[in-house]
């Protein structure tokens, strides 16, 4: 329950921090950190324009997407404090819930009959398919390391003992950061600020959404960012008490947001054709983690 409240709170200003960081890095003052949220509230109040090509799918997809992300957030714990949903193998449910939302966003993009949105949908489905193995292998490695098969079990029993385990923690954080970037369509996979439809992924999928639906989609992205930030912060929390976990949580979230901002300020997007290779690197990094775990458990000797 704690994690749910904290994630929702973070989602209100997460993108704001990214934008602020980027503004400062480029020498501007920039908007306040709650500006993205204000924009979303403004969108909620607006009417919409629908394409004549679209069907009911286009109208229901944003709500389904938003609901799936809220539901996925319920699975995320905070250190020793359970998420609302917690059982053996909850991370499988987590991944499949996100996939459910993605399924609807993809078909809603194709519902418009636009070639641009089809292009975005094609890329999104491929890239998320490529990123999925990394998540599962990562969770598998930690399941192997801790002997647990739930988010809560894994995070509350995760202890860093030897040098290898620290390295594993760093690698896992790296993998999760990149997964978060892919899932939220940020640099270096996708550039949310690009102005050419041909080079977009996520942005081009939602070209035809407007009003309330667009607000839902944008806020879903904020929530997703905060959710991944929460998972990353879990790597550093362990079984500390609430007094320490909440500050750690916010520190991790804010530094994650600043890191994303800095990253995006000083880096260009990859060529689209190189993205699959890059994403597949994640799987190899998570395999590295897996073998690191095997090394820790001294399984090779047997």
């Amino acid at each position: 329950m704690v994690s749910l409240i904290l994630i929702i709170a973070t989602s209100l200003f997460f993108t704001g921090i990214i934008i602020r960081t980027k503004s400062i890095a480029s020498g501007r003052k920039g908007p306040g950190i709650f500006q993205p949220m204000k924009d979303i509230v403004k969108l909620f109040k607006k009417g919409s324009v629908y394409s004549r090509t679209t069907s009911i799918i286009f109208q229901i997809a944003p709500s389904f997407y938003f609901a799936s992300i809220l539901m996925a957030i319920l699975c995320v714990p905070l250190g020793n404090y359970l998420g609302v949903i917690s059982f053996q193998g909850d991370f499988i449910l987590f991944a499949y819930l996100l996939a459910f939302g993605k399924f609807f966003m993809i078909i809603s993009a194709l519902d418009t009959g636009s070639s641009f949105e089809g292009m975005g949908a094609s890329r999104e489905s491929l890239f998320s398919m490529l990123a999925e193995p990394a998540f599962f292998i990562l969770m598998g490695s930690f399941a192997l390391l801790t002997g647990q098969t739930s988010f809560h079990g894994i995070f509350s029993t995760l202890h860093y003992g030897s040098h290898i385990s620290y390295m594993l923690g760093i690698l896992a954080t790296f993998v999760f950061v990149i997964i978060a970037m892919i899932e939220n369509s940020r640099m270096p996979i996708d550039d949310p600020k690009t102005h050419l439809e041909l080079t977009m992924i996520h942005e081009v999928m939602i070209l035809d959404n407007s009003g309330f639906d667009l607000g839902l989609i944008l806020h879903a992205t904020n929530l997703k960012f905060a959710m991944y930030g929460a998972i990353i912060s879990n790597f550093f929390i362990g079984d500390l008490s609430l007094m320490y976990t909440i500050p750690i949580f916010f520190v991790v979230q804010i530094s994650f947001a600043i890191a994303v901002g800095i990253f995006e300020s000083f880096m260009a997007r990859f060529r689209m054709s190189h993205n699959p290779q890059f994403i597949f690197i994640l799987t190899s990094v998570s395999l590295l983690i897996f073998f690191g775990v095997l090394l820790l458990l001294e399984r090779f000797a047997k």
Partner: peptide
Amino acid sequence: KPALLSTTWGC
């Protein structure tokens, strides 16, 4: 809220 019908955005 008002909901208008239009064509798909085609650049």
